[in-house]
Design a protein around this nucleic acid. Structure first.
Length: 426
RNA sequence: GGCCUCAUCGUCUAGCCCGGCCUAGGACGUUAGGUUCUCAGCCUAAAGACUGGGGUUCAAAUCCCCAUGGGGCUACCA
């Protein structure tokens, strides 16, 4: 059975690159019916922090990556590493230097492995220095702990970033010395920042939760991440997770590093928002508004549902719903000065608003069609284009020149609010 | 520097393994037009790439070599 692992260090939040590595592991496990194991590499006691661990686990869950079994903490396995290190000393394959245990690398030999993505890669041991196994402070080094754990945890496939390619021969030497079976390796390309380097804080958001905060939906982010270095073929780009699992195979992952493109993520996000089942979208936006402190428990969910429906096609992120919310629920509107200048400060502006308002006041039914009919009729009577009435009204009731269809907005807002807002310009 | 690795539109990629169907396809973004009450959306169109040089072959984006460029590693970090 396939057993893969994701091994984060709780020394920082889960960033885009690691999330993508986790995703490929997870997809491969689900695709093959195998297991996805989490190992926490917290050997660095100083830099490790439980808060980071919570954030990493929370990010994984948010992105649907449920793991199998219990978490393994390296910090709880120091005895194990020590035992194996001492066994190597015993076998004269390692030696002590002070309090540290160092692995002796035999020179003039070749080490190779068949990477699932890159094919055969080989190295000369002349390039590899003797490796510290146990540091003088009694903690194991990364390469050593990694080998012991992957072997002990019966990991069959090591899927990790290709920055680990050069670590692989060192690890293979250790697998051999320890008599462990060597797993399959798959080194996936790194995600690069716009200037070609490693993705880092400096290049904007890298933490998964930052994306959540910016209003991206989990489905879109997972979809986008999967597309970084992998393509299902047939020009398919938008694919639900079930489909991804079905089609994913590490063997089809690219060798080339991919640059993170916020524009495309944004577009994917808009697609997911547009096509999301309406009740789910309402729930997601509600959750988002709550997180942002825009709403509390008393909140007109029915009205919000209508608003979401009216705006979902023109929304790119959940964040866009914040300003939409304010238009409909804040008693004090924020006006775009330029818009007011353009549509409500003309010589005939007041006259237009007064006339429109009068019509609206007398309208028997205040719904989309009735309002539209009334506006078109009035425009006709005034020998004006409907647009000449529509634009000023939109600014008067929403403060902006952009937004959903005017009649939709008015119907949602309701007669009282519409009349009250228009009164300001009479 | 040494070692490893990668190389198709600005970006993500399809094609490459198993050469011909590639006058290189799709998507994002950009630009133009259409639709509408605005914006967005949607529809249509346009511009836009095989890093360079050598081979191999009747034929190369696809195979080989070299160069160039990018990235990674070169820690008692992970």
């Amino acid at each position: 059975m396939v057993r893969v692992r994701f091994a984060p260090s709780p020394t920082g939040y889960l960033h885009i690159g690691s999330a993508r590595t986790a995703l490929f592991n997870w997809l491969y496990a689900r695709h093959t019916g195998g297991q996805f194991i989490l190992r926490i590499e917290d050997t660095d006691k100083v830099r490790s922090n439980p808060e980071f661990l919570d954030e990493i686990l929370g990010s994984l869950k948010w992105l649907f990556m449920e793991w199998d079994g219990e978490l393994t903490f390296q910090s709880k396995r120091f005895d194990l590493y020590k035992k194996y290190a001492e066994a190597l000393v015993e076998k004269k394959l390692a030696f002590r230097e002070g309090a540290a245990i160092i692995f002796k690398v035999e020179k003039e030999r070749r080490v190779f492995f068949d990477d699932m993505i890159h094919g055969r890669i080989d190295f000369s041991t002349d390039e590899i220095k003797d490796q510290v196994l146990m540091k003088s402070d009694g903690t194991p080094t990364y390469n050593f702990a990694c080998v012991v754990d992957d072997a002990q945890m019966k990991i069959t496939h090591v899927i990790r970033g290709d920055d680990h390619i050069s670590n692989t021969p060192k690890q293979i030497l250790l697998y051999n010395a320890l008599g462990f079976e060597i797993p399959q390796f798959a080194h996936i390309p790194l995600i690069l920042s716009k200037d070609g380097g490693r993705l880092s804080k400096r290049h904007g958001a890298t933490s998964i939760f930052e994306y959540k905060n910016m209003g991206f939906v989990a489905e879109a982010l997972v979809n986008y991440l999967a597309l970084m270095g992998w393509a299902p073929g047939n020009d398919v780009e938008i694919l639900p997770i079930a489909e991804m699992i079905k089609l994913f195979d590490v063997k089809n992952v690219n060798k080339t590093g991919a640059t993170f493109d916020m524009d495309k993520l944004g577009w994917l996000n808009s697609q997911y928002i547009k096509n999301m089942e309406i009740n789910k979208l309402i729930a997601e936006t509600k959750e988002f508004l709550k997180c942002k402190g825009v709403i509390d428990d008393k909140f007109d969910e029915k009205k919000w549902g209508e608003i979401v429906l009216a705006y979902k096609e023109r929304t790119r992120t959940l964040e866009d719903f914040v300003s939409v919310y304010k238009i409909f629920f804040n008693s004090e509107l924020e006006y775009d000065e330029k818009a007011v200048e353009k549509y409500l400060k003309k010589p005939n502006s007041k006259d237009i608003i007064v006339k429109c308002r009068a019509v609206l006041e007398k309208l028997p039914a205040f719904d989309h069609n009735s309002i539209e009919g009334a506006y078109r009729k009035l425009a006709d009577e005034l020998k004006m284009k409907p647009a000449e009435l529509i634009h000023p009204t939109r600014v008067a009731i929403s403060g902006k020149t952009v937004g959903a269809g005017l009649f939709e907005m008015m119907a949602i807002l309701g007669r009282d609010a519409v009349l009250k807002r228009m009164e300001k310009f009479c």
